[in-house]
Write a protein that binds this DNA or RNA. Sequence first.
DNA 1: GCAAAAGTGTTAATAGTACACCCATGT
DNA 2: ACATGGGTGTACTATTAACACTTTTGC
Lengths: 246, 246
Amino acid sequence: MQGYDKHAYDKHAYEPFAVTVDLAVFTIRDGALHVLLVERGQEPYAGRWALPGGFVLPDESAESAAQRELAEETGLADVTGLHLEQVRTYSEPDRDPRMRVVSVAFAALVADPPEARGGGDAARAAWLPYGPGAHRPLAFDHDRILADAHHRIGAKLEYTSLATAFCAPEFTLGELRGVYEAVWGAELDPANFRRKVVGTPGLVEAIPGAARLTGGRGKPAALFRAGTATALHPPLLRPASEGRSA
Amino acid sequence: MQGYDKHAYDKHAYEPFAVTVDLAVFTIRDGALHVLLVERGQEPYAGRWALPGGFVLPDESAESAAQRELAEETGLADVTGLHLEQVRTYSEPDRDPRMRVVSVAFAALVADPPEARGGGDAARAAWLPYGPGAHRPLAFDHDRILADAHHRIGAKLEYTSLATAFCAPEFTLGELRGVYEAVWGAELDPANFRRKVVGTPGLVEAIPGAARLTGGRGKPAALFRAGTATALHPPLLRPASEGRSA
DNA sequence: GCAAAAGTGTTAATAGTACACCCATGT
DNA sequence: ACATGGGTGTACTATTAACACTTTTGC
């Protein structure tokens, strides 16, 4: 606390910091993980894709700012209830060439978002497939932010019920499994997945009516709703791959 | 990015934010988890305990500021190599009654710290036992920050090799087990713990020499060093208690 | 019929739990 | 001797992983 007291909060004792939020908004499309990106119209990084975001206003928290931006950028009317979670804060002094910007990064999960429209500005917005694909490199340090957000989401799938946040209110277990597979980039055994999910109390609850849904070909699947549990015990671990230190 | 471009980075378009770091520094003492706290000498919250922290300077990142504060507050000469990790950022507009302060919280783990000395100021500093004990309530929103930091540490013990960061370079498995027990507040079976730890590749490595250490009474214990692995597969789950949703 | 996805069954391997028991040391 | 913590053994249970097989749909 020395720092606090020594300078007695002179508002201009230090160079002011701008505080912004950056959003990594994920969704599943056609079985693949997609992320919402905007195209920058101005320097620096003109023409590059970037994460949506904006300033934190004087009377709101970073969480409020993130929620406001999420509504604006996705075009969703009601954004409450969506999963929105802080990832971490990026504060390297030179991360923005123009001035000192400290950015609080959030990860958001959306099911079935509307098509991306550019913001009011000239900037384009689009849902692009996540991965080492066409959109890199992103502006600023957004590649790193996006990777951190993805890493966090992947980890939380293991030990929380987060996956249901990617799904519509009613979903099949095949769809839920698709979430895990899209985020982890790994295939799961459908039989074992079903047993694990159904056998974890509070993860999902079956919709009792003969309600069934045809997902195209194959046998109709039973519908489920998200359950009340948030933590999974034991966790649903992703298949071990060479990449993970034992 | 609309927000960025619209205002063209006028440094004074918005009320300036102060950016600070707050540190939850943990250690194990006499088998119990302790936290480093400082006593506030001034209003607001004069006389209350608070987390150590301070301003982020114009040319440093939050990580650098946290490292600098950690060295100052603990009195440790070399703070590199210590575990220091961002927890989250607290930005509610009214969290500090004097002005708008956005604080990036860190959790730090220290083995065998020197006695706490007050900072240069009148403020006292002390290692206090963690828990719903004598030090609450803390100043500002520090109770919540501390709880969040503790929750994060506890969770990371399950699936990372973090526990070794609480230990000296050479440690016995009893000491390592003590870390888990102190952070989780639960007892672990020594036999099963040993098998799990030794059987997880890369978690710890035995120091081959007949090196042994007497921890007082009982059979001398073999010494171990931290291994190279950072992730644990499968994780070392804490014993299930009623509090956790199945 | 055939492909595809849902859903059930079965089995072997792996991992976790709960102990009993011996070992080496200080007092 | 005995209390204390280190360390090994072992039987039991729970969970995971792999894969065969049946069911119900669209084409």
